[in-house]
């Protein structure tokens, strides 16, 4: 059974239909990309999945559960974690605290144990900190735990967002343009990171990306959106050959290279 399934999801903003009847299936353990020109509705689709927007029509089923009308925090606690296109860290919190916020749903601390620092509290905090440090090492942020998030370099902030999302032990990770603005070497590194996340942690990954090297490199399946609709789906080779996709991009004069420049 698919881990994530959407049926005819529609999201409108006034007169604009940002996501139009998108049907989408994603199996456990895959790495899948969503691509499409600017304004295609990719981010809006993510926002529908994570409950930040409620779709106007259609259904989203995650891990066998309908997500209809659930709040974003409930959806997150069901195992759907995400990053944001325009990095949204808690800038004035330290790196490690950012990750600890990601663990919120798993921490059991009762008010009483918090106030009196009961052993259960201390143990849990210690474990959480250890785990946070592990995650920092995992994404390549070793040793900057006490740094304020806003003081990290750009690439570090992107990594921190991923670590924060991983902290919730998700079943599935939604990454919104995680390589945007990175140099080729950094891009290479995070691409490997994504693969590790999937291979070692078994987390399913759905990512939006404009950088075709990343997309073609790691995706097992690519889904193409344009004007809110899903216009194609297939393996990287199939997508490369798909005329509609080429049209969608070239027809609007938008090629991958230009996107990169814009975002950077």
């Amino acid at each position: 059974m698919a881990l994530l399934e959407t049926v005819d999801v529609v999201k409108r903003f006034g007169g604009l239909t940002a996501v139009n009847k998108v049907n989408f299936k994603l199996d456990q353990g895959r790495i899948v990309s969503i691509i499409g020109p600017n304004g295609a509705g990719k981010t809006t689709f993510f926002n529908c999945l994570t409950g930040i927007y409620h779709p106007d029509e259609g259904q989203i089923i995650f891990n066998g559960r309908p997500l209809h009308r659930l709040r974003p925090d409930q959806i997150a606690s069901h195992g759907l974690s995400r990053t944001f296109q325009n990095i949204r860290l808690f800038g004035n919190m330290s790196v490690i605290e950012n990750i600890l916020v990601g663990m919120h749903v798993h921490l059991r601390q009762s008010p009483l144990s918090t106030l009196f620092h009961l052993p259960s509290f201390k143990k849990e905090e210690k474990e959480a900190e250890l785990k946070a440090e592990e995650l920092m090492t995992y994404v390549g942020l070793k040793g900057v735990g006490n740094e304020l998030a806003k003081n990290l370099p750009y690439g570090g902030q992107r990594r921190l967002e991923i670590a924060r999302a991983l902290a919730a032990d998700p079943l599935m990770l939604l990454l919104d343009e995680p390589a945007a603005g990175m140099n080729p070497q950094e891009t290479e590194e995070v691409t490997r990171l994504f693969r590790r996340i999937r291979d070692q942690k078994g987390i399913t990954i759905l990512l939006i990306e404009h950088d075709m090297r990343v997309v073609m490199n790691i995706s097992e399946l690519i889904c193409v959106m344009d004007y809110g609709e899903k216009i194609a789906e297939g393996t990287p080779d199939e997508i490369r050959a798909d005329t509609r996709v080429i049209e969608a991009y070239l027809g609007r004069g938008a090629v991958a290279g230009q996107h990169e420049k814009k975002v950077a």
Binding site: F13, G14, T43, N47, I52, Y53, F84
Partner: peptide, 8 residues
């Protein structure tokens, strides 16, 4: 007023 969702 129109119902405009908050920007995410």
């Amino acid at each position: 007023g129109e119902n405009v969702a908050q920007k995410a």
